[in-house]
Amino acid sequence: MNNSDPKAQIELLQKRIRELESNIDSDSSEEKIKQLRQEMGLLQAERDKLDSIWKKTQLARHEKRPYTLDYIHRIFSDFQEIHGDRRFADDPAIICGMAHFEGRQVMVIGHQKGRDLKERQYRNFGCANPEGYRKALRVMKMAEKYQRPLITLVDTPGAYPSIGAEERGQAEAIALNIREMAALTIPILVVVIGEGGSGGALGIAVGDRILMLENSFYSVISPEGCSAILWKDQEHMREAAQALKITAEDLLSFGLIDEVVPEPENGAHADHDAAAEILKNHLRRHLEDLLAIDVETRLNERYRKFRSMGVIESRAPVAAGR
């Protein structure tokens, strides 16, 4: 199927089948009906797949889904938030703080979304400004200074696109974080808990292990944004979500993440405690692994991990115009 709109095609086929059925005059039309039904079955399957992927992306953004603070309160103890970038502002879209993880001192950083309208606006829907990334970097360096492992929780539609964010260097802030995280000498665990929105996610997501919750996604662009640019309309976000291959399962198969963290039966939003408990067990195991490795090996492995991401072939270029 080359047309990317199965819904319209199914409707078309249904119409044709009805027409033929209302006017059966020979064996050939019965044969034709059979053939059309088969075609429709394939389309239906394709559409079901689109729906299931779309359902996942909607779960990742579910309004009752546990957010960073929900996990922090369930997984860590003695959380003490650290505010501000000491340059310009405190960005409530990214939370940083010291905490205990099963008796061990750790630093936690995560995007934070709001639950009700007021809080959503306060948290800017989890879309950080440059100050958020700069606060995160400051806190990461402090964690490195005192050799405390870092755990980051990723949940953002993307870095905030605004005049102010551009004026204050959104791109530079994210770029610097990515580079500096690559070289931090402390163990870094990254978990995509909901939306992994492009550069805004990556700005706190370089580490030794990258985990993703079962119903989270991680993408270079939102399905809506992709639909707008490539399909030039707002209607094709399901197709875009499928084409971009952004589910945890897909990314695991590409070697872009290390593990998929299962969610409770009906999704993390249905049971915050259970979701946190599962995540806690995964964090414990990975943290123990990482702490057992010496710094140099860990940094080399982190380097190799990102170094190997990509699929490339070799072929001589053909001269222009041919």
Binding site: A183, L244, L256
Partner: peptide, 26 residues
């Protein structure tokens, strides 16, 4: 920017290049 048609692979090229740049910088 990052090429949409190669999805999350494209996003991760940012991390790949920056990791190498961290070495260059140091």
């Amino acid at each position: 920017g990052a090429r949409m048609h190669e999805g999350t692979f494209s996003l991760m090229q940012m991390a790949k290049i920056c990791s190498a740049l961290a070495r260059l910088d140091r």
